[in-house]
């Protein structure tokens, strides 16, 4: 590699100046699994940890194709207009078969080339349906560099809970096709979001019906934050100002009610809990030889309930110990 193209070493000051080249290099480092790079990545995050966290972390979740990226595009425009530094973390699913991923969200986002906006796409990788660890650590980095971070989840399964572990404000986006919403409410997904946005409200009749449905479902709630339900359209820019204002209002609420720090602290605990469960699960599974291993074990005997229980119990023979200090 010639001297002209050698990458510059990472400087905190470059990150704080929002030099996107440096930010990208830092995220590359966070993603790098090689042990010495992991070491450097940890050092970098530790160095940043003492700095303030100016960012409001906003999660945008909802089923595939509902308009998350298009809405983020509208929110980027407003934030950039207001002179804010914006970080976007967009997560797309990985293919179980190939391990590959198509990262297409930024194609729907208009990224103003000269404003301080940094958009990074992540594949969910083995964290099926959720936020990958890399995406999490990128948010940890960006929190120190941005005024607002917008996270787009893949919108299925695990991601609702994953996003709750990192975002200050969660916006659930749904389509105005009735049924959808009530399903969500029943499925308990509705516990997570702070704001509900019914997108594609350019189709007015359906949208009105959907808003009425959700509002009715939420009407019995007694929370300190009355969760707003908004009909919006990313296509026509309808009520996006209201959405933007609602997001700001929720942040204001968190700070004035002095719950922001406790919320973040709780999130950390929950994140560690889910990491431990995930990690130990992964190690346990590997000890059994993965799906193939289980398959072979079960071939030796009939797959009765008892056999399955005994099999799961085998994992207990794998020993865990907490070693060292933090």
């Amino acid at each position: 590699m010639t001297a002209t193209t050698r990458r510059r070493p990472l400087e905190i000051s470059a990150l704080l100046r929002f030099e996107r080249q440096a930010i990208a290099a830092a995220v590359n480092l966070l993603e790098d699994r090689r042990p010495e790079r992991q070491e450097q990545a940890r050092a970098l995050l530790d160095e940043l940890a003492v700095l303030p966290v100016p960012a409001h972390v906003v999660g945008i979740t909802g089923p595939p194709g509902v308009g998350k990226s298009s809405l983020i595009s509208r929110l980027i425009a407003r934030a950039a207009q207001a002179g804010k530094r914006v970080g976007v973390v967009a997560v797309d699913p990985s293919s179980k078969v190939s391990g590959g991923a198509l990262l297409g969200d930024r194609g729907r986002m208009h990224v103003p080339p000269h404003a301080p906006v940094f958009v990074r796409s992540f594949a969910a990788r083995d964290r099926l349906g959720g936020l990958s660890r890399e995406a999490f650590s990128a948010v940890f980095l960006l929190r120190h560099l941005c005024d607002v971070i917008l996270i787009e989840t893949v919108g299925v399964g695990q991601s609702e809970t994953d996003i709750a572990h990192i975002a200050d404000t969660v916006v659930l986006v749904v389509q105005p096709f009735s049924g959808d919403l009530l399903q969500f409410i029943k499925a308990g997904v509705m516990e997570v979001p702070d704001i509900l946005a019914v997108n594609k409200a350019d189709d007015t009749t359906l949208a009105r019906k959907a808003v009425a449905e959700v509002t009715a479902a939420l009407s019995l709630e007694r929370r300190s934050w009355a969760r707003p339900v908004l009909a919006v359209s990313a296509t026509t820019d309808l009520h996006i100002d209201a959405l933007d204002a609602a997001i700001a209002a929720h942040y204001h609420h968190l700070r004035t009610a002095h719950v922001l720090d406790t919320r973040r602290a709780e999130q950390m605990v929950e994140w560690v809990v889910s990491e431990v469960m995930y990690e130990l699960g992964r190690v346990g599974l590997a000890a059994l030889g993965g799906s193939t291993g289980i398959h072979t074990l079960l071939e030796r005997q009939p797959a009765t309930w008892g056999a399955l229980r005994r099999l799961a119990a085998l994992v207990q023979r794998v020993e865990y110990r907490v070693t060292g200090e933090l």
């Binding site: 990985s94 293919s95 078969v97 190939s98 391990g99 590959g100 991923a101 198509l102 990262l103 297409g104 930024r106 194609g107 796409s121 594949a123």
Partner: peptide, 14 residues
Amino acid sequence: AVWCRDAGMEVVYE
């Protein structure tokens, strides 16, 4: 793009 993904790559296509 589709074939790269199926070969296991992470593909940004806009």
